[in-house]
């Protein structure tokens, strides 16, 4: 019996991901830490401001974890929401857990408090890099209904590792934002197949933007997180120079590709147009060794 990560709430994801009953929440809903900025606009708030942060264990290892709740304003980042995440990452530098897990589900900055949200995301970015520079691995998990967009799409790519499901979407400007601003001919956000093959987990995996692709199952995310727990990515000059070269090759090789399928063909994958139809296991065997 699988338990869909996509359908689960933030708290359900944490409960299924971490060791049973090991999670202790910091600033739990009983503390009623809500956004004053939403209140000022008569917009309903949430007692956790849409993010759950705390400490727990993963396969016996001490970890800190945060989970954004897509059900509240699409996981958008406001002042309080962002400060909880930044505080957790700063706590990691002080308490030195074995890793920090970020269960990201967010459309980006919360417009009702846009300036505070943007600054909050910049602080999260700094805090992720500070934790990594202090030797604490930071993992991002992406598989929620609202995907991982806006500033949180940048935050995810600052982490050591990214685990994503096929249903997970990762990008900067969401398809709806692009359609609203540039027109439906630029990006038809209702064309689900187009959206998924442009920003979905499979394409991100093939592009080398994420490290692990898992089925939409909380247990599969857990298993992958255990395996990746202490894997590190580099942040030194050599690591960034090689990332720079890889991104430059991506622009050279795929910069003229009009569609994800053209990129997959350029990667030498046979029957590239069939990839969206395959389940995760068949997909991974079809593309073995072909990703960028």
């Amino acid at each position: 019996m699988t338990h869909s990560y996509y359908e689960a709430s933030a708290r359900e994801r944490l409960a299924g991901l971490l060791d049973p009953a090991s999670f202790h929440e910091l600033l739990p809903p009983e503390e009623r830490v809500t956004s004053p900025h939403l209140r000022q606009l008569d917009t309903p708030g949430a007692f956790d401001d849409g993010i759950v942060v705390g400490a727990g264990r993963l396969d016996g290892h001490a970890v800190l974890a945060a989970a954004q709740e897509g059900g509240f304003m699409g996981g958008a980042v406001g002042e309080v929401h962002g400060a909880k995440l930044t505080g957790l990452l700063e706590r990691a530098v002080a308490t030195r857990p074995e890793a920090v897990l970020l269960l990201i589900e967010s459309g980006g900055v919360r417009l009702h408090e846009a300036n505070a949200g943007l600054i909050a995301v910049s602080e999260i970015m700094r805090a992720v890099l500070a934790a990594r520079n202090a030797g604490i691995p930071v993992l991002a998990l992406i598989g929620g209904q609202y995907g991982c967009f806006g500033g949180m799409g940048i935050v995810a790519r600052l982490c050591d590792r990214i685990i994503i499901s096929e249903e997970g979407r990762l990008g900067l400007s969401g398809p709806e934002v692009i359609e609203t601003t540039c027109g439906v001919e630029e990006f038809d956000s209702r064309d689900r197949a187009l959206v998924w093959r442009t920003v979905g987990g499979k394409h991100r995996f093939l592009l080398g933007e994420v490290d692990v692709l898992v089925p939409d199952d909380v247990a599969a995310f857990r298993q992958a997180a255990v395996a990746q727990l202490t894997r590190r990515g580099g942040l030194d000059l050599d690591a960034l120079k090689s990332e720079h070269a890889a991104l430059g090759r991506r622009l050279d090789r795929f910069g003229d590709c009009p569609d994800a399928v053209d990129i997959w063909r350029a990667l030498g994958i046979a029957s590239a147009e069939r990839l969206p139809l395959l389940d995760t296991a068949d997909f991974l065997s079809a593309v073995a060794g072909r990703g960028d």
Binding site: G153, A156, G171, L172, C182, R250, L251, I263
Partner: peptide, 11 residues
């Protein structure tokens, strides 16, 4: 804001 930038992983 473009589909191409998202396709190539602008984030």
């Amino acid at each position: 804001l473009s589909r191409r930038d998202e396709l190539l992983g602008i984030n």
